[in-house]
Structures are given as C-alpha cells and as structure tokens.
Amino acid sequence: MKFINIFLIVAIILNFNFLKADEIKTENKIAKNLRCLICQGQSVHDSDSEFAISLKIVIKNKIQEGLSEEQIYNFLKMKYGEWILYDPVFNRNTYFLWLLPILIFLAGGAIIIKRFYYKK
C-alpha cells in the first residue's frame, strides 16, 4: 500500500502533464453529468450559458482542491437539488426506473423460452 502511494506520488511529480489530461477528463465527465438550470435541456458541458461557464470553473477549482467526483456531485446536489444530476441515484424514488427495464427484459426472455417449452 505504502509502496503504491510512493509510486503514485513519484508518478505525479514526474508526469504532471498526464495528470492534467486526467483532470480535464474528470472535469468534462462531471460537467456532462450535470444538467444546466438555465437552458434546461442541455448539460452543463454542452451549455454556453453564464451559469454553465461559471459552474465549469467551479468544477475545475474543486478538482484542484482535491475533491472527488462523488464529493462534487454531493456538493451540487445540496445546492441545487437532485434534479441537477443526469445520472439518477439508485434510491427509493428510482427503484422502478432502474429495475423495470431489466424486469421487462427478463419477462421477454421468459416468454420466448416458454414458447419452446410448450412445444416439447
């Protein structure tokens, strides 16, 4: 564990650019997962509204402060409500959202298999 940590630190120092590319990637990923409150059909990443541009700066700052992706989502969820997240959290409100399609898939499979079962 310790070895890995040291290795990581060395990697970070030696490879500053690499990390930067990574940061841009996380930044884009987070912005893509946020819904813009001004032009409500767009993600923050896609939107060019004042709000979205500022929020992108906030995300960048938070990443540099060392916050994880999860922490940034929580921060924004607290400020703006669950609505801002494009990726709905799995909770009481969204059980059906996530599970219903899977149930439909299983039911479909069952119907097809039943067809052959009957024939025999």
Binding site: W83, Y86, P88, I102
Partner: peptide
C-alpha cells in the same frame, strides 16, 4: 410519473441510457 406521485424532480440523462 415521479413528479406527479411524489413531487420529486429528477433528471434522466445520457449516463442512464448508456448504463442500461
């Protein structure tokens, strides 16, 4: 449906569709 039943507003976006 969720908004009418529980008054909660959520967004369903690209990550949901990609995952499923």
């Amino acid at each position: 449906f969720l908004e009418v039943i529980t008054a909660n507003k959520i967004s369903v976006g690209p990550p949901f569709y990609n995952k499923l």
